[in-house]
Nucleic acid binder design. Structure first.
Lengths: 367, 367
DNA sequence: GTGAAAGCGCTAACAT
DNA sequence: ATGTTAGCGCTTTCAC
């Protein structure tokens, strides 16, 4: 028998006898084997005692012994080993298109709140709305064996999601959906939001209303544009007076570019309905650029009610989306899916409401 | 028994009997053994061929065979297994105090950019500046065997960090540091930033300048306040004219509360230097509340130059902090630490500069 | 109720 | 250069 081994068991003996809190400052973290040894039971028994789901398979007395041993050693289960063994990780991957857009931190909070109560952890990845980056982050998360995904990055035709669906990976979509329904999706009721916005504008006397739509490759861009056209028509506004200009992305720059195109071709509009608040920000810049007052010359409505838009000048009228709920509801759906193995892509649509602030006003006669 | 439950178990039974399509669409992902078999080599050889670091130990011909086999099978390495085997995970944990503060997404981007080129992935966790939540997230990440941490959540006395240091866990601090230097830290040169801000104010004729400091439990709050006092003294401003009011947190609400206290006790100040932009936002609200014009009655300076503050009315004068670089530099330091196992907590201090916008103006005679 | 043993997928000595 | 073997730390049959 080697010196090292003898020495080590001497230490253990002494520790057990003296009932000392033992924790080396630098040595490798204790394993379940250490706990088992200290408690005087087999690894397997320790495992059962430590796991809430199986702790009833063990006598209360040994359970306590194991638990106190674990506490004494400051035992922390190695989730990597556990994952390898169970092929589940109690973590879920969250893919967010752009964390710098203030609405997504709220979504994340919703997710974490809903997940935390069930012992799951969120692993967040930012994709910058780049398909390559999305794929890379997806793979990275997958290779870490996340149990499922919460994705706010879907495109209407999304090869990544198609593959994920083929492979039977659990996914819940947030906000954006695919054309072919593959996964459950939690979204806002964009049509209703659009309708409320247009109604507000027509009530104010506007008859020439433009929409700066989000990218048509995304369900939100496409859907809101569609809702815009339908609602406008329903209000008797001819297509010629309700132009739609598509933005290349949901960014301030893209919004500004689209707004310039709009005014070049359609200088007579009296109101703009932006595809989201970022686009609205860009439009607001262009309004200033062209010497147009908001709301006196042109009314402006955003979408999302993201943080800080109430602090703009003028404060932005916008469609409020309950982002926290979006995240929480999606997380709930995912957990539900784990439990029931139910493969029916249900859709949850959350109600939206218009928040009227200072960027909308009566249509001016002269324009 | 409810309908729903019966229905669900019927489904399960049917699936099991029919050896269902689920199994066919989602057979387990291929392992390295599958790749090896297809390539006609041993697992270990396949492993060597697949790993860039060891691929030279294998003949080019077999390397190609293995690679193509891997491609044919769409093989994705199981990082959980790899981690268990190597006790390294090529992931690093990132702890962020508050993702809704727009500066942190920038930090994260810096981190990801610096990490990505080295094959590391960031696992992000939001802590809401709550010690409990921070501890929980830290443990969760640790049990997933992250190789190290990037933390922007440090408190001046931080038991969590003390423990982490004892356990020899690799950490690099971002922005905030501990009183006792435990880990490398990347921060902005707050003293210089403060000095620039005060100089700007005195140049404009201000002699009664208040500081709404961040929490003194955080190095940023404490350090900036200290720099404020020193610089003010150096400019010949007496302490009585340069009050410091501490905010309970870096939030708009806390900033507003502090601003109210300030004006109640010290109505004569002509300029406010906020501990960060969020606090400045709160101060701005209070200015409006009290009928004071900014900058005509009171000048206001923020700290960080976070997104959107240029869109306020008035646009906020603030100290710009290079957040992207903060993150990137910290990530670089951490990777460096992996390589050299060097345990000297070096400090990197990045230069800051004042961005003058519309919230600062000449001191008014009457005030 | 508890122990023994196998195995999750991979890497890393150690052979050959 | 490649095959063999032995784990990494945990869970989970299967015995007893």
């Amino acid at each position: 028998m080697s010196n090292a081994v003898r020495h080590s068991s001497d230490n253990q003996l002494r520790d057990r006898l003296q009932n000392l809190p033992i924790m080396s400052t630098m040595g490798k973290p204790p394993t379940i084997a250490d706990v088992a040894k200290l408690a005087g039971v087999h690894k397997a028994t320790a495992s059962r005692a430590l796991n809430p789901r199986t702790s009833n398979q063990v006598t209360p007395a040994t359970a306590r012994r194991v638990l106190t041993a674990a506490k004494r050693l400051h035992y922390q289960p190695n989730n990597v080993a556990r994952s390898l063994s169970t092929s589940r990780s109690a973590t879920i991957g969250v893919l967010i298109p752009d964390l710098t857009n203030p609405l997504f931190p709220l979504v994340l909070r919703g997710i974490e709140d809903a997940l935390g109560t069930h012992g799951y952890t969120a692993l967040l990845a930012n994709t910058d709305d780049s398909p390559e980056r999305t794929q890379a982050q997806f793979d990275a998360l997958l290779s870490r064996k996340v149990d499922g995904f919460l994705m706010a990055t879907a495109r209407r035709e999304d090869p990544l999601l198609a593959r994920a669906h083929e492979h039977g990976i659990a996914v819940v979509l947030i906000n954006r959906s695919t054309d072919v329904p593959l996964f459950p999706v939690v979204t806002g009721d964009d049509s209703a939001g659009m309708a409320a916005a247009i109604e507000h504008l027509t009530d104010l006397g506007h008859r020439r209303i433009a929409h700066l739509s989000g990218p048509s490759t995304m369900s939100t861009g496409f859907g809101r544009a569609q809702a815009f056209r339908q609602t406008a028509a329903a209000h008797g506004l001819p297509p010629a007076d309700t132009p739609v200009v598509e933005c290349s992305s949901y960014t301030e720059d893209a919004g500004a570019a689209a707004a310039r195109r709009l005014f070049d071709e359609n200088p007579a509009v009296t109101a703009i309905l932006a595809g989201n608040d970022m686009i609205a920000l860009g439009a607001l810049d262009v309004l200033r650029e062209r010497g147009l007052d908001c709301p006196d010359d042109v009314s402006l409505i955003g979408f999302n009610d993201m943080r800080f838009v109430d602090k703009l000048t003028p404060p932005l009228t916008t469609v409020h989306v309950p982002h926290h709920s979006l995240g929480a509801e999606a997380a709930r759906l995912l957990l539900e899916q784990f439990a029931s193995a139910d493969r029916v892509p249900k859709t949850v649509s959350l109600p939206l409401h218009l928040v009227v602030r200072g960027s909308t006003g009566p249509a001016r006669a002269g324009r």
